[in-house]
Design a protein around this nucleic acid. Structure first.
Lengths: 186, 186
DNA sequence: GCAATCCTGTACCGATCGGTACAAACCCTT
DNA sequence: AAGGGTTTGTACCGATCGGTACAGGATTGC
């Protein structure tokens, strides 16, 4: 049986393969090379094959965002500061737009249906946690949800645009503009 | 030899296959089924194979945006109205977020490098045309470019989010919010 | 109505796909 | 050192991948 600890070591490498090549493009030979594990080991750790690998990667990403972004947003005593910390974390995680959002990529692809629950939950909880923090910083509920949706969408779109133009600075600019908007209306 | 007219008939079906399955996932058997053409015909029309098919699809999309969005934005006598018409076209084209932006999908995937020129040109000209229209409606150049980047990114991100949450209304809301922002600052 | 050309379906190519089988190598406990 | 279970590499499976070859059908010019 594959302990979570056993899997955990290879999940980052696994995630990078899916990020770089997409679900369909991430072949077992690529995965094997990236992780340094043969097929035997891979299927020992993930009896469900590629689908289970992808599900585990999505779950790990989800867990990271839950612990580092969503929970702090919901629990913060100073919500304005929590939003700013979220922007810090987003800039670091996505490496100024050089690193794509795997959940966003899955949402755009044909494998969306297979992972619909995980994808929906990831974004729904992001929007909800952010809206919660915005609401507790003096906005009414409707405006908070609308602004939260705009912010999350802007982050996703900035990744697309920064990659398309090969211009990481665009991502940084987009985040700076979002900070300004939050500060202005708060 | 394959005339452009000969290709043109099957390009829409081809585009839908790439949109639905991505570049790697769009297998020749899927393409054959979707277009109703055997491999012989496909390779007659596109001697370069799948790569040429994708390049032609991207070129057609680019041409459509150039004719229906970019050129009107640049040439409009009433730029404010032209921006509004652009939002109409975007809502119709992306079917309220149910239809993904193929160029955006390519930008996120590993095939970005192969089509880097086309992808960059598509987005760069979109931003430039929009910034041009915004500039001629009374904004200074820097603010126009920044707002144009935000708008294009917001559109791309709204597609991701609307699909992830399976909530097309979110896309419509995002466009409405963008219209309001443009009107407010103009 | 015939011949030259264009078009297209089908069979086939080697490579690779995701997945399975299994035996040797490894690691523990005794 | 012996024995047990666990972890691993490797060979192999049928299916499918992108791409090629080519024979015959459709079409055109005359």
């Amino acid at each position: 049986m594959a302990d979570t600890a056993e899997r955990a070591g290879i999940l980052p490498a696994l995630a990078e393969v899916f990020r770089a090549h997409g679900y369909e493009g991430a072949s077992l030979s690529l995965i094997s090379r990236a992780t340094g594990l043969g097929k035997g080991s891979l299927y020992h750790a993930f009896p469900g094959g590629k689908a289970e690998m992808a599900a585990c990667v999505l779950a790990e990403i989800d867990g990271w965002f839950e612990a580092n972004l969503y929970a702090p947003l919901r629990d913060a005593e100073r919500p304005v500061e929590a939003v700013s910390v979220m922007f810090d974390a987003v800039e670091a995680y996505f490496r100024s737009g050089r690193r794509v959002c795997l959940v966003g990529v899955v949402a755009l692809g044909s494998e969306r249906d297979r992972f619909a629950g995980a994808v929906r939950s990831y974004f729904a909880r992001w929007v909800a946690a952010l809206a919660d923090a915005l609401g507790r910083s003096g906005r009414d509920a409707g405006a908070s949800v609308a602004l939260a949706e705009e912010i999350v969408a802007q982050i996703q779109g900035a990744i697309v645009l920064a990659r398309a133009l090969d211009e990481p600075a665009l991502f940084a600019r987009a985040i700076a503009a979002l900070r300004a908007r939050v500060a202005a209306a708060g």
